[in-house]
Amino acid sequence: MSLRSRVIDLYKNLYHMGKEYPGGSKWFHDRLKLAFSKNKEVQDSKQVEQLIARGEFVVKEIEALYSLRKYRAMKQRYYDKDEEVSIATQKFEDSVKKL
């Protein structure tokens, strides 16, 4: 695939992901456009590769953010006992037993 179409695909992919951005899609889409137009003059293919790699890293980060957000929401709603608290409680109870 040509560099040009890879850049376009990356943009489309990021645009699609931005639709469900927690802070509103407008904020995300504005930043996205800005980030791409800032580098529109870049001609060197090595540099373009680097920029694509950076964009792909952002894709992974957003995926992680969305998945964490959903996980946390589900945990908060359906699992009343906080894991960290129960681990700490277990630790405390174990240490009390030793006394």
Partner: peptide, 15 residues
């Protein structure tokens, strides 16, 4: 249950 795995994201190419 919630902790079984981490679901993947439906990417645009896959859609």
């Amino acid at each position: 249950d919630l902790r079984l795995n981490e679901p993947r994201y439906a990417t645009l190419p896959n859609i």
